[in-house]
């Protein structure tokens, strides 16, 4: 497999890998490293790529596992990642300036979710995967995913309502 072929294969979902790892690892640099690592692993194993049913799902699973490993080692070394480089540069959001603050809140709430729920929320609501694809990536059955997703969404909503009503009621 040539380099250009590989890039064509990988380009469509590399951003998804990056976003998933950022959701899990919080920092942009860590997420970039994780994405690079996963892509390099794919490149090294390029001979076997054709044997996988869905390379995207495979890559997502690799990213998930890699990030969880990273988090484990981070926790072991007592290193806490502080979220400091979150930026919102979306033009569609700039129209709704008053929402920016809420967006930060949403982000904070999402970061507080358990890793599993955070991943599922990312895969579903951001990347819009269907349940079967998420099931493949997460190695869980669809029902469990549905439950986790429902919990995640409810938590986010309730937390947001709490923030909105803070000091009001």
């Amino acid at each position: 497999m040539k380099q250009s072929e590989f890039l064509n294969l990988v380009m469509p979902f590399k951003d998804k890998l990056f976003r998933l790892s950022k959701r899990l690892l919080t920092s942009v640099e860590e997420a970039e490293d994780a994405t690079q690592e996963v892509l390099l692993k794919l490149w090294k194993g390029r001979k076997n790529l054709s044997t996988y049913k869905s390379i995207e799902a495979f890559a997502m699973t690799m990213t998930k596992n890699y990030c969880l490993d990273k988090l484990k080692s981070k926790q072991a070394s007592n290193l806490k990642l502080v979220h400091s480089n979150y930026k919102d540069e979306q033009t569609s959001l700039q129209k709704q300036v008053e929402l920016n603050d809420s967006l930060n809140w949403v982000n904070k709430i999402v970061q507080k979710l358990p890793e599993q729920q955070r991943m599922i929320l990312q895969l579903r609501d951001v990347e819009q995967y269907d349940f079967d694809e998420i099931a493949k990536v997460m190695d869980m059955n669809p029902t469990a995913i549905r439950v986790a997703l429902s919990r995640a969404r409810k938590t986010v909503r309730e937390e947001l309502i709490k923030k909105h009503n803070y000091g009001v009621s």
Binding site: K14, D15, L17, F18, R19, K22, R23, E32, T35, D88, Q90, S92, L93, Q96, L99, S102, L103, W105, V106, N107, V110, Q122, D125, V126, E127, R153, V156, R157, L160, I161, H164
Partner: peptide, 18 residues
């Protein structure tokens, strides 16, 4: 309103690129 923030966040998160 609270949903608006949620959905805006999701669509914003989708635009991040590697």
């Amino acid at each position: 309103e609270e949903y608006q923030a949620m959905f805006a966040y999701f669509s914003g998160a989708k635009d991040e690129q590697f």
